[in-house]
Simulated assay, not measured.
Amino acid sequence: MTDDEVVETLRATARARTLPPPTGPDAIAEAEQVIGFRMPQLLRRLYSEVANGGFGPDDGILGVSGGHAQGNFYDIAELYQDGPDPSGRIPAGLVLIYDWGCTIWSLVDFRDPAGRMWCNHQGELWPQGITLGEWLIGTSTGTLTVDTLLDSQPTVECDQ
Score class of each variant (00 low, 15 high):
V6P: 01
R15A: 14
A12C: 03
I104S: 06
G60D: 11
N120C: 13
P91K: 12
W100H: 15
G56K: 10
G24T: 09
L150M: 14
G71Q: 09
I28E: 05
P40S: 00
F73G: 04
T141I: 07
G129A: 04
D147R: 11
D75C: 14
L43Q: 03
V108K: 02
E5A: 15
A12G: 04
T23W: 01
R11Y: 02
V34K: 07
R17K: 11
Q33A: 12
D151P: 01
E78W: 09
E5C: 03
T9E: 08
C119A: 15
T9H: 10
T139G: 00
V95P: 04
P86G: 06
L79D: 13
P21Q: 07
G83C: 09
D4S: 13
S65E: 14
A14C: 04
E32F: 01
G71S: 05
G142S: 05
C119F: 05
D26I: 06
V6R: 01
L94P: 04
P20F: 00
Y74E: 14
T9V: 06
A92Q: 14
Y74C: 10
A12M: 08
E8C: 03
G129I: 03
I35H: 06
H68P: 09
H68L: 10
Y98C: 09
Q128M: 15
H68W: 10
E30S: 11
D58A: 14
Q81T: 03
D109H: 10
L149E: 03
D82W: 11
Y74G: 11
I104K: 04
A92V: 13
G36Q: 02
I90E: 11
T148Q: 07
G83Q: 02
S87T: 15
V34M: 06
T23V: 14
G67S: 08
D4C: 03
M39P: 03
A14Y: 00
E134A: 14
V146G: 14
I76K: 05
D59Q: 02
Q160G: 06
L125H: 03
G138P: 01
V34E: 07
R45E: 11
N72H: 10
F73S: 13
V108F: 09
V7E: 02
A16K: 08
G66C: 05
P40H: 02
A14L: 05
Y47F: 15
D109Q: 09
L136V: 13
T2G: 09
Q153C: 13
G36L: 03
D147Q: 07
L19P: 05
D4E: 13
V50L: 03
V146P: 04
M39T: 10
R45F: 02
T13N: 01
W118D: 06
T139H: 00
G133A: 12
A92I: 10
L150G: 06
F73E: 12
A27M: 08
L144Y: 08
V6D: 06
V108Q: 10
P113Q: 08
G101E: 04
P154S: 02
Y80E: 04
L94E: 10
T141H: 05
